[in-house]
């Protein structure tokens, strides 16, 4: 028996593996912007908001991708719009809009007494039941995101790094925010059936956080995060096959374990280097590059 090729004899595994790799790469790629713009909570909240759109599409028999996608973009723009007002922070805006949308989905399903397999997959993920159509959508969104990032690389980098100054340099921060909202919503809609609302945020955030621990370069972070996402999708599928745990959970747990090991290793390495220098300053960050933390 060959541990690598044996699972590939099953069609469901091949589809799941492809979905894991493509979806992982897509989430990893888009996740870099989500993490660096400190929008991790948006990634989590938006997946719940899109569930509301998915429920409406299901109950009224509308096209899932078109309707849930439009719903997601609308939710993301609404969050951006509300959080631009100084009185309401982004976290509060996300809390209100995404949970309201999720609650709408739950209410509609409850009223219609209609809970299909597709909707269950949207909630918990069904990577082994992924269809060719869903794979093509995932691939299409990955290509779309890749092309947008290549063609708008410098504008997106500027608006992510220094949004306050972007407009003065001829870069519309509103336009780049909209572009990122569309990419994030499309990513969540495309990956939702495979990974599920409950786990998708982790596959967006963790690869980027791991990549950040490994590099101080934005371009390298993009490549690393995409690769880590794709690799975790593949390895998670094999772990799921042999250990008999749900694939989505296997992917996320593996990513979390890699993060924990790397975080510990970078903190330990930094402390060793400081000790070698002869003194440890309490004010020095010994955990290596930090993510989502203010300058200290």
């Amino acid at each position: 028996m060959n541990w690598f090729s044996d699972p590939l004899t099953h069609g469901f595994f091949r589809h799941g593996l492809a979905a894991g790799v493509i979806g992982g790469a897509l989430c990893g790629l888009v996740g870099v912007y989500v993490v660096l713009k400190r929008m991790s909570y948006i990634g989590h909240g938006l997946s719940h908001a899109i569930f509301g759109g998915a429920a409406i599409a299901n109950v009224w028999a509308l096209n899932f991708y078109v309707f849930a996608g439009a719903w997601g973009v609308l939710s993301a723009l609404l969050i951006n719009g509300v959080s631009r007002r100084r009185k309401i922070g982004a976290d509060a805006a996300i809390g209100v809009i995404t949970t309201a949308s999720f609650a709408l989905g739950v209410a509609l399903i409850s009223r219609a007494h209609k809970f299909s397999i597709n909707l269950e997959a949207a909630l918990f993920g069904n990577i082994l039941g992924v269809t060719i159509e869903q794979l093509l959508v995932l691939l299409g969104v990955l290509v779309f995101a890749g092309v947008v990032i290549v063609l708008r690389y410098r504008e997106l980098l500027f608006a992510t790094f220094d949004p306050e100054a972007a407009d003065a340099y001829g870069i519309s921060s509103r336009r780049t925010d909209t572009l990122l909202a569309i990419m994030l919503a499309a990513t969540i809609v495309a990956a939702m059936q495979a990974l599920g609302v409950t786990l998708i945020a982790a596959t967006i955030v963790i690869p980027a956080v791991i990549a950040r621990l490994l590099t101080d370069s934005f371009a390298k972070m993009l490549v690393l995060s995409t690769s880590i996402g794709a690799l975790s999708g593949a390895v998670g599928m094999y772990v799921s096959y042999y250990v008999d745990v749900p694939p989505g959970a296997a992917i996320v747990l593996m990513l979390a374990a890699v993060f924990a090991v790397l975080y510990g290793a970078t903190a330990f390495g930094a402390r060793r280097r400081l000790q070698a220098l002869g003194s440890i300053d309490d004010h020095i960050d010994v955990a290596g590059p930090t993510v989502g933390a203010d300058r200290s």
Binding site: L36, R154, D162, A168, I171, T215, D216, S217, F218, P289
Partner: peptide, 27 residues
């Protein structure tokens, strides 16, 4: 061209001096 307050910058952002300077032509 704008030079922001240093306090407004995320100094943990993964970017080098050269990459920051090249952003001057991003628009």
């Amino acid at each position: 061209a704008v030079v922001p307050q240093l306090e407004a910058i995320d100094w943990n952002f993964p970017i080098t001096v050269e990459e920051v300077v090249l952003l001057g032509t991003a628009g």
